[in-house]
Simulated assay, not measured.
Amino acid sequence: MFILFIVAIVAAALLLFRLILIRRELGRITKQLRCYNSGETGKKIDVSLFDRRLEALASEINRQSHLIVEANAQRTQIENELRQAIANISHDIRTPLTSIFGYIQLLEAESITPDEKLQYVTIVKNRTKRLQSLLNDFFELSVIESLDYPLRPDKIELTNLVSDILFGFYDSFNEREITPEIRLPDENVHLYADESAIRRVVENLLANTIKHAAGHVQIWLEPKPETVDLIIVNDAQKLVGSDVHLLFNRFYTADRTRSSQGSGLGLSIAKSLMNKMNGSLTAKLDGEKLTMTCNWKR
């Protein structure tokens, strides 16, 4: 009986000692977390006492801290992109507006000839169309990136669709004296997706290719067991490797100037549409060859 009493006392003492250690360790964890939250240190929480529950707690706190850091970094990136976007929007809208206003002032002059008047009216009309196209692209991108953007997936014949789109760009390629090498599968590749979204993606990619390509262009549709790839390869002499990941950013232009021929939103719209369709749009630069790859799940 006495031995049992001694054992109970020893067990109680060990338990009390264990509780004291756990309490001390909790205080230590609290202090580490306070220092981390106040910015005094960026060190993650560590546990000196072997206890699975305390280690699990510290691990979850560290995981939550990591998620907060990632969220803050993403928020900062979005804020920077938003500021850049606002600056670019202001520039891209102000440029044609300034030009339109200038030519309107010239039209008001009494000394202009009929030929000059016709020339100025044509310029104003073109600048107005440019501004309208720009605003339409802004609106389209904002609609596409909204959470409730509707997709209407249906079974489509992708080979026929791509062939039809390419035929529509025949004159544009011909004007640039580009004869693309086109490879389409003999069989019709079927895909369950939104036809209008796919058409918009392919049209934007082809328009970008025609605008910037120099030399040989390759376009092929490659069916795989579980996916389908549309691949476009063209020369991109103005592009450098570090710029490739920026291609799908809003308003990016490879020559670092604000192009008067487009808003810089075409590839961004295509990327957003591919994401909406659970597909992917990627770019890779090999030497001076730029490869754009659209990937759809079958």
Rank of each mutant, 00 (worst) to 15 (best):
T128R: 00
K31G: 12
A197Y: 00
A71Q: 06
K211W: 06
D154C: 00
M277R: 06
A8L: 10
P223V: 13
L15K: 12
A254T: 14
S172R: 12
T76P: 00
R256N: 15
I144S: 03
N80V: 02
R258Q: 08
L67G: 00
Q84V: 03
K284C: 01
I165R: 03
L135T: 06
A56N: 08
E288G: 00
T179E: 10
L273D: 03
L290R: 02
L54I: 09
I89V: 14
V7Y: 07
T282G: 08
I22H: 03
M274G: 09
R152N: 04
P114Q: 10
I104N: 12
I61F: 05
I86M: 08
T179W: 00
I182Y: 04
E108P: 13
V162K: 02
D255I: 11
R34N: 14
A71R: 10
V47N: 04
F167N: 05
S242P: 06
D148M: 02
A58T: 06
Q84A: 11
T291M: 09
E175S: 15
H91I: 12
E203D: 13
L16E: 00
V202T: 10
H212E: 02
L273V: 14
S280I: 04
A13K: 07
Q237P: 09
L67D: 04
N62S: 05
L67S: 07
V240A: 14
I22A: 07
N88T: 09
V202Y: 02
L16C: 06
K117M: 13
M277H: 05
D51S: 15
Q261P: 04
D154E: 13
K284R: 11
M277E: 11
M277G: 15
I78Q: 09
N208F: 02
H91F: 14
T159P: 05
L184C: 10
A207G: 14
L205A: 07
S48P: 05
R28L: 10
L21K: 15
L206Q: 04
L4W: 04
